[in-house]
Design a binder for these strands. Structure first.
Lengths: 193, 193
DNA sequence: CTGTAATGCAAGCGAGTACACGCAATCATA
DNA sequence: TATGATTGCGTGTACTCGCTTGCATTACAG
């Protein structure tokens, strides 16, 4: 990948993150990349092609692979916190906004599989973790798929809400959220009947 | 609101839900509404005006007000399930997709306050519920804001993921998800040290 | 029957869109 | 110094965008 092509891809992805695919024009891209507009079409087939090259790049993919979650201690609290931390480290508000910018009918069919890989990686890693925890006798048998979905949803939900509304919705910081929600998942809400 | 204007608004909001604001053209709207294109501009100032009229309408707002959550029994399990059920009843995948379609720089500043009302209503209702539960001696004092955010995030997260990936990500049904995740929130994950 | 409001229809505006082409300038390498 | 690849620049094309205008048609109310 030559330098010029990379500049074009970077400009394209940044603009899509900020304005969405349809609102991002080739003129915009050229200006942002600091190249002439016709250079885009010398390097790429068309506008769509730039985006598809972009989503293939590690740089513009949240590189969230199952290996990231290998660092487990087989203790619920530190492990669940690690899962959430690693996710939020990779899935920044920028990445969330990019994912939404890619939701245009003209390209979504091709970009959706890439976007979906992130939640899939998180979910399958977490389910696998729970299964191993059960085998180690640390937790009983549960509906791990559903449990993982609950934990993932709350992780994703917080990330998305932060990306959308910043601190306007809730001032709770990431670290506090992780600590408290993991505590809830493990201990539950103490109830006095 | 005359019938023609309503048809125009309905067509506009449906198209934005399906394709986003920028990709929705006035020609599209006219065709979908079954009216002539110039009629749009007789009834409304411009394209943006149609959308702003739309988001003001009850029909195109998730009518999620605090009153919806008044039906509480002051018992954690049925109450939390009710909170999640009511939310998912109102916030359909269609509404989620519409909210995302409204995320265009040209209109977002004006539409965001409307969109944000939904999570705000859920969060403040849930926090208020927890405070009342504490006063009734049912639960101890906790970081209710953070707890509410956890429960809301997992509710919203599931809703959003369903809207985005349908059943491709996880086949878990709404009812099962609500039941299981509330059980987790209350009892926690049983741990054997 | 007459006046008025709502709508359709055809045409068109200026601006912007993705994309194409020819040509000159640049630059590393041979 | 000569060559070939890369890029900038200007111009251009075919089309779509939001939006406007003038005029014909309908329908209903006084």
């Amino acid at each position: 990948m030559d330098e010029t092509s990379q500049k074009i891809i970077d400009a394209t992805m940044s603009l899509i993150r900020d304005k969405g695919y349809v609102a991002t024009t080739t003129k915009d891209i050229a200006k942002t990349a600091g190249v002439n507009e016709c250079t885009l079409f010398r390097k790429f087939k068309n506008k769509k092609d730039i985006v598809l090259c972009g989503v293939e790049q590690e740089k513009w993919r949240a590189n969230l692979t199952p290996e990231i979650f290998k660092d487990v201690k087989w203790e619920l609290q530190p492990d669940l916190e690690m899962f959430m931390e690693k996710y939020m480290e990779k899935i920044t508000p920028d990445f969330v906004n990019l994912s939404i910018g890619l939701r245009a009918p003209q390209i979504y069919e091709e970009t959706a599989p890439m976007v979906m890989k992130v939640p899939q990686a998180f979910l399958s890693s977490l389910i696998q973790y729970f299964e191993e925890m059960e085998q180690r006798g640390k937790i009983p048998h549960l509906d791990f798929e559903c449990l993982a979905l609950t934990i993932f949803s709350s992780t994703f939900g917080y990330t998305f809400l932060s990306a959308s509304f910043d601190k306007k919705l809730s001032g709770i910081r990431k670290e506090q959220y992780i600590r408290q929600s993991v505590a809830t998942f493990i201990q539950g809400i103490p109830e006095r009947k």
